[in-house]
Design a binder for these strands. Structure first.
Length: 1049
RNA sequence: GGGCCUGUAGCUCAGUUGGUUAGAGCGUCCGCCUGAUAAGCGGGAGGUCAAAGGUUCAAAUCCUUUCAGGCCCA
């Protein structure tokens, strides 16, 4: 046989529907064996061309979920792309080691809880346990990160508990202090009494921290001190959901612009927000309205204290508050400045001092002797009972509301005044707002929306935590207020200078043991001791850009020339978290933004828009997805979706949407590859990269490929990953469903001629380049394909393709796309007439001004549409008429108000051709202001006519049948059945066969008349109408059963 | 209460600086095609572009208000 070369097999034997997950696993192994990741980084030198990527440190506890995977994919795609663009992109993984989560877990593991117990247990042992627990989840993280094919440097990672990291954090703190940006203050903060620590803004917002809780909601009356002229006892009604704060009540607030009704009931006057009156229908039944006053008129009045504990204070006044509303409660807000942020602020503005009779564990102190030692939440009940006994309780309800809980201990938080250290964010706020303008946010609205607005409203940041496992506050203070002194340290050297000790661990308790005599105390009795608090761990993650390189103690030049970083990506809520803390510290320390580009992606939710929850199992298991449909399909699913534009992404429970990506993207690209391998192996051809093929199909797909490279490059440079996915997908369609499909005969023809060679070389070139372009988006599949095609080490070690090396041919692309449109219309006409495509038709005429453009493709159209003859005809008038279509966009600005009238005229046919164009009504049109749309005549003389949308061309199909055409159609039907038989018999596409057919006379005559052609099409060495042998396939042909026997030669 | 985002086909979403008859994928129905692709192609049905008002010759697009959902802040 002529295909002797079949023996050589240069390309893998590729299954058409392989186990993609297994292929991916193989690629992952290969990468590890070959050290490909490291090689991809190392191939570009460090220095000026570096692309700086900041990987935000996740908490080193808890397992990753779909949201993390999405972030991970984004964090992988961009660095892979930049690497291919020639940049060195290091990807150090970071671990956030400190903070409450670790401490709480350790408390649980040790079976101890509370500050006292920890101190008793020993801070050194406690912290040693914290340190040891850090490694617990790292294994799982690494497994997920590996499974998603994300390239990350775990070996050269950084940890926030490393000495070098902590020293940089210490430096940053001292630097802020020296700039006057750190101060201590006594303030109300969210506080976890169970964990005995204040909680940062951010921590109150972590998943599930807001939860429904049932609380009492009580309304009490406060008796106003009489004013001159008051005869009747007057009370004001206040509402609260925290009765335990009433003993600390020092004021009430009203809205100055809000209307308050003065009601008379049973001889007493009651004041309540006019709009809130409806909330108390029962209690106020029978009340008579005797007046209506603005809140402002009430401001300044005083009332009798509800409890005696603080009755000696200068307080108990009605104040104005801008936060008061009448939606809930009475429109009058009770103020306990020790337990509410608004309360504290408004009271401070009015000279009312804070009282805070609650201890660290949330129990009343001796200042409230009646309930001393009782947890405040448990004190609600007896307090309400007391109020009832005294007859001041107007109403007692319970309400179910969203209330913040300590995310570690699960106990409700309280708000409580305490002493804390602050970063004076307000001092750099305006500058942050300015620097933020230099950051490119994706999506864009984040810049002036969610992030920008948050910056504008930035408040000072509480950074001290009364805990154990964290970076120490590097503040030493005199223990005798008579001789005050504060020292803040910014390095190990400075500590060594003053304390004579070189620490190799900055954690407590070692750092606490550093003390010295207070130099400012002539008596020599007082001692400098460290302020015991540790830093908020968000201060550490915000310090990551410089702390990970131990700036300024090491890498000084590098950092200063590589800051801000190029790229970060996290989910949108990090505008309050990591993005924000980086911004604060970067602005305060360096007067620069911390990064140049940021992708804020949205949240992955379930099919009903609910949060993903492990407990509800409302999402597919990621590892299961890796193992079945594969990581690349998941990557594509997540990264081609609107979640990258900041919206939500709904994932159905079974992961059908993910599996769909296999069908839409993975399969098509794999099919193109397997097609190539199948025929190249059969032909024994080794293809060469080249871009100079002459055939129109080749030039077409090469030009499309050039556009693809340009498009994806543009998309990726703009961090539009979803756009890049869309570009790749539309290219795949042109490749598979036009270029390859139309080229098939070129691959399976017998002659090894120039055309065949070009077909192989072009397809090979296109596939190789497609792999490179799609490599960041489908790193595993493109790797498998690229290696199969080239035997090279890795597609990820190649450079980004240069579009200029591919031929540009916009005209050809436009013409070919017109050919595709014409085909589409012609196939539509066939369907209208119920003329199957295997039935040849006599002819097709392409008529109109654009017809000349498709003349070179007549052969292609003939084959695609199965017609005997394709003609082009520039004159359309024989086939129909034209409608005038005005281009409103072009014409509108010129004619303005007349537009409507002209549109009506054009539609109504009130127009004519003039010597040099078109005149509608009395107006001459300029070129570009109109189009002529062809309207075909009703069909005549056996023709079907249809205009092609978007072009000045119409398709005229000859629908007249002849016996010869019908016979040929029948022969084609027979060939189709023979091909099915071949496939069912399990034959290879290049196997030769003996063919035996029995069918009705009509069919046998048809096959006989085209015997040569049938044999050629089916690789049959012989054809006879005998009783079939070998594999026999029975099917209907020309209304009777035909039996087809194929037998391998 | 405030800020930001979203609301377009049964579902998921596009829709450029306003421009004529609002698109794609999935699903569905009908048909076609197949020597890689249990795949592909063509077509049909399916929309008061959340609602109302305004600006304009012209509004899914701009403005105002309202409604619904999400995120965040209070």
């Amino acid at each position: 046989m002529s295909r002797a070369a079949k023996a050589t097999r240069r390309y893998p034997v590729v299954e058409s529907k392989p186990d993609f997950a297994a292929i991916e696993a193989g690629v992952l192994e290969g990468w590890e064996r070959g050290g490909i990741f490291q090689a991809s980084v190392d191939q570009h030198p460090a220095g000026a061309g570096e692309y700086v990527f900041y990987d935000g440190p996740p908490f080193a506890n808890g397992l990753p979920h779909f949201g993390h995977l999405l972030t991970g994919y984004v964090k992988d795609i961009v660095p892979r792309y930049q690497t291919m663009r020639g940049r060195r992109v290091e990807r150090r993984f970071g671990w956030d080691c400190h903070g409450l989560p670790v401490e709480m877990e350790t408390e649980k593991a040790l079976g101890i809880s509370g500050q006292k117990k920890i101190v008793e247990y020993g801070i050194d042992r406690f912290n040693a346990h914290c340190r040891a627990s850090i490694g617990k989840y790292t294994g799982e993280w690494e497994r997920y990160v590996r499974g998603q094919a994300r390239w990350v440097d775990f070996k050269n990672d950084y940890k926030t508990m490393d000495l070098s990291f902590m020293e940089s954090v210490m430096w940053a703190f001292a630097e802020l202090y020296r700039k006057g940006l750190v101060y201590e203050s006594y303030r109300v903060m969210p506080y976890s009494w169970a964990a005995e620590t204040p909680v940062s803004n951010f921590e109150t917002r972590l998943d599930d921290s807001y939860r429904e809780r049932q609380d009492p909601a009580i309304t009490v009356r406060l008796e106003l001190e009489p004013r001159d002229g008051d005869e009747t006892k007057t009370s004001i009604l206040v509402w609260t959901t925290t009765p335990w704060t009433l003993p600390s009540n020092l004021a009430v607030a009203v809205g100055p612009e809000i209307d308050y009704a003065v009601l008379e009931l049973d001889g007493e006057r009651l004041i309540v927000g006019a709009a809130a009156r409806g909330n108390y229908e029962k209690e106020l039944a029978g009340a008579r309205e005797v007046g209506l006053v603005k809140g402002a008129e009430l401001v300044g009045r005083t009332y009798r204290p509800l409890f005696a504990y603080f009755a000696d204070r200068d307080a108990f006044r009605v104040l104005a508050g801008d936060f008061v509303d009448t939606e809930e409660g009475t429109g009058v807000v009770h103020m306990a400045p020790g337990f509410g942020e608004d309360d504290q602020r408004v009271c401070a503005e009015n000279g009312i001092e804070v009282v805070c009779p609650v201890d660290e564990q949330g129990r009343f102190t001796a200042e409230v002797p009646d309930w001393q030692g009782l947890n405040v939440l448990e004190a609600n009940k007896p307090i309400i009972a007391e109020l009832k006994r005294r007859g001041v309780l107007v109403r007692h309800d319970t309400i179910v509301h969203n209330y913040p809980h300590c995310w570690r201990t699960d106990q409700p938080l309280i708000y409580r005044a305490l002493s804390s250290w602050y970063v004076k964010v307000t001092a750099v706020r305006d500058r942050m707002v300015e620097l933020n303008q230099e950051i490119a946010w994706i999506p864009e609205h984040i810049r002036d929306g969610q992030f920008g607005k948050w910056l504008e409203g930035a408040r000072d940041w509480s950074i001290s935590r009364n805990r154990f496992w964290g970076s120490p506050l590097p503040i030493w203070r005199s223990d005798d207020p008579a001789y005050p002194r504060i020292d803040v340290y910014g390095s190990l050297d400075e500590l060594e200078r003053d304390f004579g000790v070189r620490l190799d661990d900055l954690h407590r308790p070692a750092v606490d043991s550093l003390t010295r005599k207070n130099p400012d105390d002539p008596t020599g009795k007082s001692t400098m001791r460290r302020v015991e608090d540790v830093l908020d761990c968000w201060f550490e993650s915000g310090s990551m850009p410089y702390a990970q390189v131990h700036y300024p103690f090491e890498n000084k030049d590098w950092f200063e020339s590589h800051f801000p970083g190029d790229f970060v990506s996290e989910y949108v809520a990090q505008t309050r978290g990591w993005f924000y803390t980086m911004m604060v510290l970067s602005t305060a320390l360096f007067d620069r933004p911390p990064f140049k580009n940021a992708i804020c992606h949205g949240v992955v939710v379930d099919e009903n828009g609910k949060k993903l929850s492990k407990r509800l199992r409302n999402y597919p298991d990621p590892e299961e997805v890796f193992a079945t449909v594969g990581s690349d399909a998941l990557r594509w699913y997540l990264c081609s979706s609107p979640v990258l534009r900041g919206g939500d992404l709904r994932v159905d429970r079974e992961g059908k949407g993910i599996a769909e990506m296999v069908r839409l993207v993975i399969n098509p690209i794999w099919n193109a590859y397997s097609f190539f391998c199948l025929y190249a192996n059969a032909d024994g051809i080794e293809a060469e990269p080249r871009t100079d093929a002459t055939g129109t199909l080749d030039r077409y797909i090469l030009a499309k490929l050039r556009a693809l490279v340009e498009d994806v490059q543009r998309d990726m440079d703009g961090y539009d990953i979803a756009g890049a996915c869309a570009s790749v997908r539309s290219f795949l369609d042109a490749l598979n469903n036009w270029s390859i499909r139309r080229s098939r005969p070129r691959f399976w023809k017998t002659e090894h001629d120039q055309d065949k060679r070009e077909a192989y070389d072009t397809l090979y070139t296109v596939l190789c380049l497609l792999c490179r372009v799609a490599a960041p988006l489908l790193p595993l599949m493109t790797e498998a394909i690229y290696q199969g095609l080239t035997n090279e080490k890795s597609v990820h070690l190649t450079a980004w393709p240069n579009a200029d090396e591919l031929p540009a041919d916009p005209e050809l692309v436009a013409d070919m796309d017109l050919v595709r449109a014409i085909s589409s219309v012609a196939l539509g006409l066939r369907e209208d007439k119920r003329l199957r495509i295997r039935l040849p038709l006599a002819g097709l005429t392409v008529a109109g001004a654009d017809a000349a453009r498709v003349a070179p493709f007549a052969e292609l159209l003939r084959d695609e549409l199965n017609v005997k003859d394709v003609r082009t005809e520039t004159d359309l008038h024989a086939f129909g008429d034209f409608d005038l279509k005005l281009n409103a966009r072009a014409l509108g600005p010129r004619v303005g108000k007349r537009m409507k009238e002209l549109l009506a005229a054009a539609r109504g046919g009130d127009w004519k051709r003039t010597d040099d164009g078109i005149r509608v009504a009395d107006l001459d049109l300029e070129p570009g202001e109109y189009e002529l749309a062809f309207v075909p005549k009703a069909e005549s003389q056996g023709s079907a006519i249809q205009a092609v949308p978007g072009a000045e061309v119409a398709v005229v199909l000859d629908v007249r049948l002849t016996p010869a055409l019908e016979q040929e159609g029948l022969a084609r039907d027979a060939v189709r059945l023979i091909q099915i038989a071949r496939k069912q018999a399990g034959l290879h596409v290049s196997d030769r066969i003996r063919l035996r057919i029995t069918a009705n006379d009509e069919s046998q005559q048809a096959v006989g008349a085209h015997a040569d052609w049938v044999r050629e099409q089916t690789l049959a060495e012989s054809l006879s109408f005998e009783a079939p042998s070998g594999y026999v396939h029975e099917a209907e042909l020309a209304g009777a059963t035909a039996a087809i026997g194929v037998e391998k030669v």
